[in-house]
């Protein structure tokens, strides 16, 4: 092996971390631990509220949709009834006119 490479390997060999290193990392990890729990609590509440809003919104939407459908059906029935009435009136008018008209001799 190239002596220069050997020198590099030797000079850049792994340095041991200070004795307190792991303890300091763990102290910082412990500081961080409660945060995810808190944020999870908020997340749970937010998810529950969102779910209630979605359910109530869904029920209300369904109610409105049903009411609108019923209204549309009633409107269609009314239109049909008016059409029927109109056509019957027209027939009656035609008949009346035919009675009034003088018959050819």
């Amino acid at each position: 092996m190239d002596p220069l490479e050997n020198d590099f390997r030797e000079a850049l060999s792994r340095e041991p971390a200070p004795d307190w290193f792991a303890e300091r990392v763990m102290a910082r990890v412990r500081e961080q631990k409660p945060q995810p729990k808190q944020s999870l609590g908020w997340l749970r509440w937010a998810a529950a509220v969102a779910m209630v809003v979605v359910v109530i919104g869904g029920v209300r939407f369904d109610q409105v949709r049903r009411e609108r459908l019923a209204g549309e059906q009633a409107k269609q029935q009314l239109m049909l009834a008016l059409q029927v009435t109109g056509s019957k009136l027209h027939m009656a008018q035609v008949r009346v006119q035919s009675i009034d008209r003088p018959r050819p001799e």
Partner: peptide
């Protein structure tokens, strides 16, 4: 916690040394 501490012990030399 104990498992993570073990993990730090195992790899601390590599990580610290790269930075140093």
């Amino acid at each position: 916690e104990a498992g993570f501490a073990e993990l730090v012990h195992t790899h601390q030399s590599m990580v610290y040394s790269l930075c140093w």
